[in-house]
Write a protein that binds this DNA or RNA. Sequence first.
DNA 1: CTTGACCTTACCATTACTGGAAGCTCCATA
DNA 2: TATGGAGCTTCCAGTAATGGTAAGGTCAAG
Lengths: 130, 130
Amino acid sequence: MKIGQVSEKSGLPTKTIRYYESIGLVAPAGRTAAGYRAYDKNDLETLKFIQRARSLGFSIQEVSALLMLWNDRNRASAQVKELAKRHVEEIDRKVAELQSMKETLSTLIDKCHGDDRPNCPILNDLANVR
Amino acid sequence: MKIGQVSEKSGLPTKTIRYYESIGLVAPAGRTAAGYRAYDKNDLETLKFIQRARSLGFSIQEVSALLMLWNDRNRASAQVKELAKRHVEEIDRKVAELQSMKETLSTLIDKCHGDDRPNCPILNDLANVR
DNA sequence: CTTGACCTTACCATTACTGGAAGCTCCATA
DNA sequence: TATGGAGCTTCCAGTAATGGTAAGGTCAAG
């Protein structure tokens, strides 16, 4: 398989696949005589794994750790669970922050009549005019 | 006021204040004879405004728009409201994405016994072993 | 034999900063 | 008066994870 095929099948842009190779997230691909990257089924599975982990919001660093655990037949599932739990906590933190922003904004939006008049509680709040 | 003072009072690092000047978000500060940046009360208010808008998650671009609206005595509050509403929608999208990730992960975490045994539903799912 | 799709590397841009180096300036203290 | 340290200056580089574009090589079809 050439990079276009694995891109199609993994859902990762070719650019991204080359990038992952360049940063050492995946081992350098084999090459054809012409210098094209050549992938086998195994490589594809790895890229799919990465794509799924990324889509769950794991950072490249975390994906790297997950890959190592995945390739370690003897790892304890506790390690993976721990990593996943920490990631969920991180997600929770982000959600809480966003919710808090939303709450403040929604309150301000409700107070703003939003017509042609210039008076605007949103700007007043940002300007700390209370 | 020198940059250290406005940094203190605005909650923005000096680095960040210089950065905002360099990208044109704020006008170049005045200078003392020695070449130090000199700020007045007005400059400080602008930086505080920016700090608050950023803390509500507005991008630099959006903050720039808000600043223009803030400085426009005749703007319609409808414009500000529109901008804020779009930002809230953006927040909603991010939250939904994070919630979806969290849901998937939580399900997997629950299924993983997390002990010394190597079998791990989390990795199995990432590897698409179903 | 040429066209067009696909591949290669290399470099710049993005977002919003943050860190560090090398060198001024200012003020207080010995 | 010298000196030391805090604070200021500019410039360069790096972060995460790509996206964009250029300039060029390769391959199969018509």
